[in-house]
Amino acid sequence: MNEKEKDDLYKAFGITPPSDVFEDENDKAYLRQEILERIQLTQHVQQQQERVFKLKRKKVMLSIAAAVSFILLSTSVLFFYFFNTAYITIEVAKGETRQLVLPDGSKVWLNSASTFKYPKKFGKKRTVYLIDGEGFFDIVHDKNVPFVVEAAGIKTNVLGTSFVVKSYQALSTMSVAVLSGKVAVSDDQQQTSILLKNEQVVYNKDHRKPKVLKVQAVERRAWNDGNIVLNAAYFEDLVLAVENAYQVKIKYDPEKFRNCQNSIRFNTSQSLTEVLDLIKEIQGITYQINKEKEVLITGSGCN
Rank of each mutant, 00 (worst) to 15 (best):
Y129G: 08
Y129R: 14
L130D: 15
D132V: 01
G133I: 12
G133R: 12
G135M: 11
F136W: 11
F137W: 09
D138L: 08
D138V: 04
D138F: 06
V140I: 11
V140Y: 13
V140G: 07
D142S: 04
K143Q: 09
K143L: 07
N144M: 03
N144T: 03
N144A: 05
N144F: 01
V148P: 06
V148Q: 08
V149Q: 06
V149Y: 02
V149I: 05
E150L: 12
E150N: 12
E150D: 10
A151L: 10
A151P: 14
A152N: 07
A152F: 03
A152E: 13
G153T: 04
G153P: 13
G153D: 08
G153W: 04
K155G: 10
K155I: 02
T156H: 01
T156W: 01
V158A: 15
V158L: 09
V158D: 13
V158H: 13
L159V: 07
G160I: 02
G160A: 02
S162H: 10
S162E: 08
S162L: 05
F163L: 07
F163M: 02
V164Q: 06
V165H: 03
K166M: 12
S167K: 05
Y168I: 02
Y168K: 05
Y168Q: 13
Y168C: 08
Y168N: 11
Q169N: 08
Q169V: 00
Q169H: 10
A170E: 14
A170Y: 01
L171N: 15
L171R: 09
L171D: 15
M174E: 09
S175W: 00
S175G: 02
S175N: 08
S175M: 04
V176F: 04
V176I: 12
V176Q: 03
A177R: 07
L179A: 10
L179C: 04
S180A: 05
S180T: 10
G181E: 10
V183C: 05
V183K: 06
V183I: 06
V185Q: 10
V185R: 02
S186G: 14
S186M: 14
D187V: 01
D188G: 08
D188W: 06
Q189W: 02
Q190H: 10
Q190A: 12
Q190F: 09
Q191T: 14
Q191H: 13
T192D: 05
T192I: 10
S193L: 08
S193Q: 15
S193T: 15
I194R: 04
L195M: 13
L196C: 00
L196M: 12
K197T: 15
K197P: 13
E199I: 00
E199D: 03
Q200F: 08
V201H: 01
V202G: 03
V202S: 05
Y203N: 07
N204M: 02
H207A: 05
K209C: 04
P210L: 02
V212R: 09
L213S: 14
L213V: 08
K214Y: 06
K214W: 04
V215C: 12
Q216E: 14
Q216P: 10
A217R: 11
V218H: 13
E219W: 01
E219Q: 11
E219P: 01
R220G: 00
R220V: 00
R220Y: 03
R221I: 02
R221D: 06
A222G: 12
W223S: 03
W223K: 00
N224T: 07
D225S: 14
D225F: 05
G226H: 09
G226V: 07
A232W: 15
